[in-house]
Every structure is written in structure tokens, then in C-alpha cells.
Amino acid sequence: MTNEIMDRPNDIMRNWFNDQWSNFPTFFGDSLPVTDTLKTDIKESDKDYELHVDMPAFDKKNIDINYQNNTLTISGHRDSFNDHEDKKGDMIMNERSSGRFTRQYHLPAVDQEKIKATYDKGVLEIVLPKMEQKKASEHHIEIN
């Protein structure tokens, strides 16, 4: 039942510069956090896949979920935090981030019509039921 989960969030360059003070800018200028980008737990059973994705401070309307070609894509955006503007220059560290976030997961043989998602207290939960596998019935073939 082990499934190869492919995560393609473009981590190669971000991890190269991974330290507690830096963010790696994307091609379009948004800043993605080096750590804590859509941390995910995935469970697999005979019947389904279940994902729990940390998405704190996201507005539900800014989260997009898509399943196509055996790939689940979760994307969203978070607006800038304006709750503590620093006009005097007193800010010594700012780790909360804003911008666009995307992750992809390879999850084959999912019944697309039955996927369900909920978002509560900063956690996105997605249940992806697997397609029912028809058991091959034995068919005896006569030799003429």
C-alpha cells in the first residue's frame, strides 16, 4: 500500500539557502518562506488518501484545490500582514510571510467526483477516495 508521494514545490534552490533569516525570492518577486510552507500529513488506507495541510491565516476563498492527471495541486495566497506597521524602524525580525504558495502530490487512482475538503482553524483536510478496483474474474478459455 506504500505510495510514492511526489512533492514538487521547487525546494532545490530554497533548501540550498535554508537558514532562519532568509527567504528565497521566486521568479515573480513573491517571497516564499524557506520553512513551514504548507506542511502536510498524508495517510493512505485501502479506501482513500487523507491529507492534513497547515495553512494558517489563509482565507478559505483564497485556497484552490485541483486534481488532474493523478496529481493533487493545492495553491493559495495570503495577503500582507498590516497589523504591526513599523514606522519607527523598531522591527528586528519579521517571519510571517505573504504571497503565493503551491504544493503538488502524486496520488493515483482517485475518484475525482467524491473528493471532499474542509478548512478549520488553519488546517485544510482533504479526503480523496480511491477508485473501486474491480476484481478480475476468472474466465476459462476453451481451446478449439
Rank of each mutant, 00 (worst) to 15 (best):
residue 122 G to F: 10
residue 42 I to A: 07
residue 96 R to W: 07
residue 93 M to H: 07
residue 102 T to D: 01
residue 17 F to S: 02
residue 43 K to A: 14
residue 33 P to W: 01
residue 87 K to S: 13
residue 102 T to R: 13
residue 65 I to M: 05
residue 99 G to L: 06
residue 81 F to V: 05
residue 65 I to L: 12
residue 78 R to Y: 04
residue 107 L to I: 02
residue 103 R to Q: 14
residue 77 H to Q: 11
residue 52 H to A: 13
residue 25 P to V: 05
residue 45 S to D: 13
residue 28 F to E: 12
residue 131 M to D: 13
residue 91 M to S: 07
residue 89 G to C: 01
residue 58 F to K: 01
residue 115 I to H: 03
residue 106 H to F: 15
residue 63 I to A: 05
residue 109 A to S: 14
residue 138 E to M: 07
residue 80 S to Y: 11
residue 29 G to V: 06
residue 128 L to Y: 03
residue 65 I to T: 14
residue 37 T to A: 09
residue 112 Q to G: 11
residue 134 K to G: 06
residue 124 L to E: 08
residue 119 Y to W: 10
residue 70 N to A: 13
residue 131 M to Q: 15
residue 16 W to I: 07
residue 44 E to M: 08
residue 83 D to E: 11
residue 85 E to A: 10
residue 46 D to E: 14
residue 123 V to L: 05
residue 114 K to G: 02
residue 29 G to C: 09
residue 55 M to G: 05
residue 62 N to R: 07
residue 38 L to H: 08
residue 37 T to M: 12
residue 93 M to G: 02
residue 78 R to K: 15
residue 49 Y to R: 04
residue 64 D to V: 10
residue 93 M to S: 13
residue 107 L to A: 11
residue 113 E to V: 04
residue 52 H to S: 15
residue 112 Q to M: 05
residue 67 Y to H: 08
residue 30 D to S: 15
residue 131 M to Y: 03
residue 120 D to V: 15
residue 133 Q to H: 10
residue 45 S to K: 02
residue 108 P to N: 11
residue 73 T to Y: 00
residue 98 S to C: 11
residue 89 G to R: 02
residue 88 K to Q: 11
residue 61 K to T: 11
residue 123 V to T: 15
residue 100 R to L: 03
residue 75 S to V: 01
residue 104 Q to Y: 02
residue 21 W to G: 04
residue 124 L to H: 02
residue 20 Q to V: 06
residue 82 N to G: 09
residue 138 E to Y: 10
residue 91 M to G: 00
residue 100 R to K: 04
residue 126 I to T: 02
residue 131 M to E: 15
residue 68 Q to A: 12
residue 71 T to D: 04
residue 124 L to G: 09
residue 70 N to P: 02
residue 93 M to T: 04
residue 12 I to H: 10
residue 123 V to N: 05
residue 129 P to N: 13
residue 53 V to G: 05
residue 133 Q to P: 00
residue 67 Y to K: 04
residue 68 Q to E: 15
residue 136 A to Q: 09
residue 134 K to H: 07
residue 69 N to Q: 15
residue 52 H to D: 04
residue 20 Q to W: 13
residue 73 T to I: 10
residue 56 P to G: 01
residue 136 A to E: 14
residue 122 G to L: 11
residue 51 L to W: 02
residue 135 K to S: 09
residue 129 P to L: 08
residue 132 E to T: 11
residue 113 E to W: 00
residue 51 L to D: 03
residue 40 T to K: 01
residue 92 I to C: 01
residue 35 T to L: 06
residue 137 S to W: 02
residue 124 L to Y: 07
residue 51 L to A: 06
residue 87 K to L: 14
residue 27 F to D: 07
residue 27 F to L: 10
residue 103 R to P: 00
residue 23 N to I: 02
residue 32 L to P: 01
residue 73 T to N: 09
residue 43 K to M: 04
residue 110 V to G: 08
residue 76 G to Q: 02
residue 40 T to G: 03
residue 73 T to S: 12
residue 72 L to Q: 06
residue 86 D to N: 10
residue 60 K to R: 12
residue 133 Q to S: 13
residue 121 K to A: 12
